[in-house]
């Protein structure tokens, strides 16, 4: 058989492609459920972290999140739960960061001005600089802090209400977080005030 002929080339390429792609399709199918589960856990973990509910194992995440009430207000999914003597509302947010979209969860107490916490789901900020928004130190600032009028201000050393500490060397990301969270606080408040919940 002439291995350099056009027919052989076409048949060979077809068989090789078919074989490899079939295996890939099978592998993808076999893990699809697990991948979906991972994504579900990642999302639920972000909500629990934002609200401030401690968890230890993956099963616990699914269990604890199952106790959170899901509401749909004007096509937006809002989660409500009681934690630490407060009614807490949580919803996803996203906005333009320095390099790309920052996605996360914002949790708000019943006064609609005090944040219960935030969690970052994903971002494309500079590792070690803007990327530090995912560090506990940054996120913990939102634990039970009041932002009068829904305005977030980043300052060198946060002391008063409405202030958070800026990240050194990451002015772009800090400004973006100020802008995103201020807008999100307003939007979230309007959403909850305008509804009957």
């Amino acid at each position: 058989m002439n291995k350099q002929s056009a027919i052989y080339t076409i048949v060979f390429t077809f068989i090789v492609s078919f074989a490899f792609v079939s295996i890939l399709a099978f592998a993808n199918q076999a893990t699809a459920e697990r991948v979906e589960q991972n994504q579900r856990i990642a999302r639920q973990r972000a909500f629990l972290n934002a609200i401030g509910i401690p968890w230890e194992t993956e099963d616990e995440i699914l269990d604890l999140f199952g106790q959170v009430e899901e509401l749909e207000i004007e096509d937006t999914l809002v989660y409500r739960t009681e934690h630490d003597g407060h009614t807490i509302y949580a919803k996803e947010f996203s906005g333009q960061g320095l390099w790309g979209t920052i996605r996360g969860v914002l949790a708000l107490r019943e006064d609609l001005e005090t944040t219960a916490g935030i969690e970052i789901i994903d971002h494309e900020e500079t590792p070690g600089l803007g990327g530090r928004i995912t560090e506990q130190e940054f996120k913990e600032q939102f634990r039970g802090r009041r932002f009068p009028g829904g305005e977030v201000r980043a300052v060198q050393e946060a002391a008063e209400e409405g202030e958070i500490a800026a990240i050194t060397g990451a002015t772009g990301t800090t400004n973006a977080m100020e802008r995103i969270l201020s807008a999100e606080l307003d939007r979230f408040r309007e959403l909850l005030e305008g509804s009957e919940v």
Binding site: L24, A27, N28, T31, R34, V35, N38, Q39, A42
Partner: peptide, 11 residues
């Protein structure tokens, strides 16, 4: 294959 394994087992 590597991508699928990482996505499923080391997200």
């Amino acid at each position: 294959i590597v991508d699928i394994v990482l996505r499923a087992y080391l997200p």
